[in-house]
Simulated scan of single mutants.
Amino acid sequence: MFRCEAVPMTSRAVATEPNDLGRYFIERGNVGDVDGLVALYEPDAVLAFPPGTVSKGHAEIREVYERFVAAAPELEPGRQHPALVSGDLALTVSTLTTGEMAVEVARRQEDGTWLWVVDQPVLLPDNG
């Protein structure tokens, strides 16, 4: 079931550094800002969430995040690793408080801001 109350719009600041995307994700996710979450992605981005599924493009990513925020998760920032940047691409990695890892590829846009292109938000550590 989806939340019925109005969702406050969060800061729509743009990512000027690749790791800004992770911080904005936590902020926007915690207030249920689906539009704000989708705005972190390029129009044809790919999201591998929930595990075992792949969503492509803003419309499919929106559907995922509508279900996600309906569950009202309380997101906590994990440990964000330094972004690995090569030209207009960046690899962003966070170790979540659960021990899982979130791994994304971001691309610098023509205006100098960053958006995610590929997002694997739950990557289980290899313990074997």
Results as ranks from 00 to 15, higher is better:
1 M>R: 05
4 C>N: 13
4 C>V: 11
4 C>A: 15
5 E>R: 01
7 V>K: 00
8 P>D: 07
8 P>I: 08
10 T>I: 06
11 S>Q: 11
16 T>E: 15
16 T>P: 06
17 E>Y: 10
18 P>T: 05
19 N>S: 14
19 N>G: 06
19 N>M: 07
20 D>I: 05
20 D>W: 05
21 L>H: 02
21 L>V: 05
24 Y>A: 09
24 Y>V: 01
26 I>H: 09
27 E>H: 06
27 E>P: 00
28 R>I: 09
29 G>Y: 07
30 N>H: 04
31 V>G: 02
32 G>I: 00
33 D>P: 02
34 V>T: 07
39 A>G: 03
40 L>I: 02
41 Y>W: 03
41 Y>K: 01
42 E>G: 11
43 P>A: 03
50 P>S: 06
52 G>R: 08
52 G>N: 05
52 G>E: 02
53 T>A: 12
55 S>F: 12
55 S>D: 15
56 K>E: 15
56 K>V: 15
61 I>H: 12
62 R>N: 10
64 V>L: 15
68 F>D: 04
69 V>T: 11
69 V>I: 11
70 A>L: 03
75 L>F: 04
76 E>L: 08
78 G>F: 02
78 G>T: 00
79 R>T: 09
80 Q>H: 07
80 Q>T: 08
81 H>C: 07
82 P>R: 13
82 P>Q: 10
83 A>Q: 06
83 A>R: 04
84 L>H: 14
84 L>T: 13
86 S>G: 03
87 G>P: 02
88 D>T: 04
88 D>F: 00
89 L>I: 02
90 A>Y: 01
90 A>R: 01
92 T>N: 14
97 T>E: 05
102 A>C: 08
102 A>H: 13
108 R>Y: 03
109 Q>V: 06
110 E>R: 11
110 E>C: 08
112 G>V: 02
112 G>W: 02
115 L>K: 12
116 W>S: 10
119 D>S: 11
119 D>K: 07
121 P>G: 03
121 P>S: 04
121 P>N: 06
122 V>W: 01
123 L>D: 10
123 L>W: 11
124 L>E: 15
125 P>L: 05
126 D>N: 14
